[in-house]
Design a protein around this nucleic acid. Structure first.
Lengths: 207, 207
DNA sequence: GTCTATATCGCGATAGAC
DNA sequence: GTCTATCGCGATATAGAC
């Protein structure tokens, strides 16, 4: 007959879940191993039996978090399937997804804040974030700009950076820096202008 | 004859300078009042005689820092004087300034990292940063887009956001997140594409 | 105002029973 | 593996002499 306590892997997962909440809310230095332990319903010694140190636990949950968010971002294959759509439609879908995923999933915003906050102490973590999330989106978009028959983009990589940068900065100012009332701007205006600026380059192609 | 020790205001300034270095390097939680005191060459009690608590010292130096960086950013008046230059020239100058100031002044980069890092604990600080720096640049640019006779920008505010966002995100990825080798991109390519995307809107104005 | 010395607390990490 | 109890340290903040 089953005992009424968590098994080993459940405890490990409870620790990881509690650690995610604590580190994302407090940042590395202010996070407390005591709170992580009690939040997970285990003793502090149990936390240390699974993770050798605060550093190791932090890096474990952050890598896990970065990889888990990967699926939410658009991969190259998703672009290939939509190559024949009008560019306005496809770019609007991409922009709205990049905006809505972090807005709906507050863990995503906390991840962005924490990656930037700890980028001095943990530069390898910042690079993992860039490699697994930012670079994937940039390469997908640049490939699309390079091969889409309806667009004639002079510099696909730079244009992808502008697209991703404008959206990422909008998320940071409105939702991390509480900018809604200080520098308000509707999502749709940002997206409309981005699409207009990108698609109007096709008028450059000849006499 | 003058004594060979600092007077009161010199000690206060030494404390402020040391606090800036400590908070920007360590973040709020990991910063130590002991290190700030010894770094300034005073006792810890002296620090507390000038600033009631760690919170108050942090907010004092961050506000000071935000206001001191204001002059580096382009004010509206600077645009008015250059309204008759070709837009390509003016926009290139603005973009290069926004890129070079934080790159040259590492304190500026540390300020950006700390504002984002502590935006959960100190939302008012984040809003001060937006109001004193980001909003000033956005309004200047939007005004320019609205009134420049050579451009016909559909949505000046949104276009200003894209311009500022692309540059801010570039600074964050390349210099805060150590992205130089992971997602390399020359400054000039970013700036050239930005200018091309903005200026080519003038071809939209009709037959 | 400024110092030395200290109070008080919470932190990360560990020892040892079970 | 998991617990309780604790160690040692460094943190913020303060008392009291000068």
């Amino acid at each position: 007959m089953p005992v009424m306590v968590m098994d080993v892997s459940s405890k490990r997962n409870a620790i990881l879940d509690g650690a995610i909440a604590e580190f994302l809310a407090q940042g590395y230095a202010a996070a407390s191993m005591d709170r992580i332990a009690s939040g997970a319903g285990v003793s502090k010694a149990t936390v240390y039996s699974h993770f050798a140190s605060k550093d190791r636990l932090f890096m474990a949950i952050m890598e896990r978090l970065v990889l888990s968010k990967f699926a939410d971002i658009l991969e190259p294959s998703q672009f290939a399937a939509r190559m024949n759509e009008p560019p306005e439609r496809l770019l609007r879908h991409v922009a709205m997804t990049m905006l809505q995923v972090p807005i709906q999933d507050r863990e995503y915003l906390g991840l962005i804040r924490t990656v930037i906050a700890e980028s001095g102490r943990f530069p390898a973590l910042a690079q993992t974030f860039l490699k697994e999330i930012t670079a994937v989106a940039l390469h997908s978009l640049a490939d699309y700009f390079r091969h889409c028959p309806h667009l004639h983009i002079a510099d696909p990589e730079a244009t992808a950076r502008i697209f991703v940068g404008a959206i990422a900065h909008y998320l940071i100012t409105q939702y991390l820096l509480s900018g809604a009332e200080i520098i308000p701007l509707e999502e749709s205006r940002l997206v409309d202008s981005l699409i207009l600026m990108i698609t109007c380059q096709k008028t450059e192609q000849g006499p």
